[in-house]
Each structure stands twice: as C-alpha cells, then as structure tokens.
C-alpha cells in the first residue's frame, strides 16, 4: 500500500511538471509572436531607435525564442521572474503584493459556495418537487446563467441605493490603518494583530465581491449535490438503515451527505478555472487591488514578464486546488485510497 501512495505522488508530480512546462512554453511563444514591441511600448513614442534597440538587447529580445525561454526558465527556477515594465519593480515583489488579495477573495468565495449550495442541494433533494425544490432550482439556474460581472454591477447598484454606508470599493478602509503581514490575507492578519475592527471592515468589503463571484458556483454545486443526493436516496443502503430505525436526519446528513459530496467536490476542482477567470472581471468592478487587475494591465501593456508570472501562477493555483480536491476525495472515499485506482 505504501508503494501505491508513493507511486501516486510521483505520477502526480510528473504530470504537474509536464503541464507547467507546456503551459509556460505556450504562453512564452504566444506572447512573443503577437505583434507589438514590448521595448517600444515601455519606452514610449518619443524614444529613439537606438534606445529601443538597447532595451531590446538588455531584455534579450534579439535572441532566438528558444534561447530566451531557456534563460527565463533558468532565472524563474531561482525565484527571479524578471522585472515588470509597468511597475519597474521585480515581478516577484509585485506578485507578493497582489496575490494575497485575490487568494483571500477566492477562498472566501469557495467557502461561501459550500456554505450555501450544499445545504440547499440537500434540502431540494429531500423535498423533491415541493416548493422549496422549485425555488432552489430556479435560484441555481439563475446563478449559472447570469455572468458574474452582471452580478457584480447589480450588487453594487443595490448596495449603493439601499445600504449607502456599505463599502463597495477596495479591500479595507484606509483610515483604519490595516496591519501588515504576515500572510497578506487581511482576515488572518487582522486577527493575528488583534484588530477586530479591521477584521469586520474587511469582511464587509469582501461580502459583495465574494457573493458576485460565488453565484455561478452556487448554482452549479447546488444542482450537482441535488442530483447526487437523489440518486443515492434510492440506494439499498438507505433502505437498510431505515429498516433498522436509524433516524432520517442521521441517514441524510451523516451517511448520504458524505457519499454525495464526491461529485460536487470533483466539480468544484474544475470550477476553479472559471473562478479565476471571473475574478479578473469582478476585481475590476469592485476596485479590488488584486492579482487580476495586475494581470489585466500586464496583458494590455504587453508586460511580458508580468504576464508570464500571472499565467503560470494561475495555472499553479488551479493545479494545486485540484490536488487538494483529490486529496479530499481520497479521504472521503476509501475505494480511491485503498485500491489505488481512479474509479
């Protein structure tokens, strides 16, 4: 059994490295073959041809792409992702500043998705075809079909007109003088420093962006949980427990919920991709100084080093999230863990 686990980890790591390699190569080549000269864009229209040529040489843009890629990866492995042409700082430092904001938003969103959709999925399955099921199904269809930027704008409008004091821009009130470090996640840092006023304020700031981002996931996961529950309610083992008088709430909330969480968790892993994509838009709407706004500027300004870092880290984030999902699945389902095969 031990060998199976080691084998699994090795295979997994190998596939992660392969995906990252292909991803980096693709984005590297793509960013360099599209028209537009980064050196010219960085220096502005007034720079002379020599200045542009100098910068090109400095950035290595006159070398063949494969040489550039080799040099970039060599530096990246040492933790040096190059310099951003827009902020004129090292990309590593930029990422360290912007990534925690996005991470915080995404983590709270995932939490919100599970908090709302799992109970809703169970309820709609248990009271199938009753009014609560119909309402729940309408709600989830609503969440799946409407794009998240529309939710973002709509929530902002609603908040603006009904709760004028509720913050709808940024991460935290600047007058509060929020503490720095150690994680960059405001919710964690404020608690570490014992600043509950900052914690509450950060939560308020998070509420609407997270909700706007969560709606699609809520719709999706509610539907999956519902259908998994309905399918499992028909199984013989439910009848077994009922026949011996085990209370219905134990049958549903202990036995069925665990079994029925396999499908939603798997889907959640895949949802991360669209979550990151949607975060780009939602962050713009709510003026959230995060990774996404940084990435968007990088794309528009053809800031090659920043762009590479944003794509690679988004990819890494997606892979890592799915690794966690797989780990959770194997904790839930002994068949995955002990048989060492994907069922």
């Amino acid at each position: 059994m031990g060998r199976q686990i080691i084998e699994g980890i090795l295979r997994r790591t190998a596939s992660v490295l392969l995906v990252l390699f292909v991803l980096s190569l693709m984005i590297f080549v793509l960013a360099r073959v599209v028209p537009g000269d980064p050196a010219r864009m960085a220096l502005g229209p007034s720079a002379t041809a020599e200045q542009v040529a100098d910068l090109q040489a400095e950035m290595g843009l006159d070398q063949p792409i494969i040489v550039q890629y080799g040099r970039y990866m060599g530096n990246a492995l040492r933790g040096d992702l190059g310099e951003s042409l827009v902020t004129n700082r090292s990309v590593t430092a930029d990422i360290a500043d912007f990534l925690p904001a996005t991470l915080e938003l995404v983590l709270v969103t995932v939490f919100l998705v599970f908090l709302i959709s799992v109970p809703l999925g169970v309820l709609t399955a248990r009271y199938r075809d009753r009014w609560i099921d119909n309402a729940g199904r309408f709600f989830s269809l609503f969440g799946v079909t409407i794009p998240s930027f529309l939710f973002a704008v709509g929530l902002q409008l609603l908040a603006g007109s009904f709760f004028p004091d509720w913050p709808i821009l940024g991460r935290v009130d600047y007058q509060l003088n929020a503490p720095d470090g150690p994680t960059g996640l405001l919710l964690v840092d404020s608690l570490v420093h014992g600043r509950f006023d900052v914690f509450v304020d950060a939560l308020q700031h998070l509420a609407f962006p997270a909700l706007a981002l969560a709606m699609a996931g809520i719709g999706q996961i509610t539907r999956i949980t519902r259908s998994a529950m309905i399918e499992n309610l028909r199984k013989d083992h439910v009848l077994t427990l009922r026949s011996f008088g085990v209370p219905e709430r134990v049958v549903v909330f202990r036995y069925l919920l665990k079994l029925s969480s396999i499908a939603p968790l798997t889907i959640m892993g895949l949802e991360f991709a669209s979550l990151i994509g949607n975060a780009f838009v939602v962050e713009m709407v709510f003026g959230w100084g995060g990774f996404a706004s940084y990435g968007l500027t990088a794309i528009l300004q053809k800031d090659l080093n920043a762009l590479m870092a944003v794509v690679l880290i988004s990819g890494l984030f997606f892979i890592f999230a799915n690794l966690l999902v797989d780990l959770a699945l194997s904790l839930i389902d002994p068949r995955l863990r002990l048989r060492g095969q994907s069922a």
Partner: peptide, 20 residues
C-alpha cells in the same frame, strides 16, 4: 449495495445499535 461504500462496516452496525 446494502452498505454505504464510504463508511466502515462497524459504523453501520454501531449506529443501528446505538439508535435502537
């Protein structure tokens, strides 16, 4: 299919006994 695949055999037996 008479046992829930993600719970141990003993858990089923114990729950039935506990609630009875």
């Amino acid at each position: 299919s008479s046992f829930n695949p993600v719970f141990r055999i003993g858990q089923h037996l114990d729950d039935v006994m506990y609630y009875a």
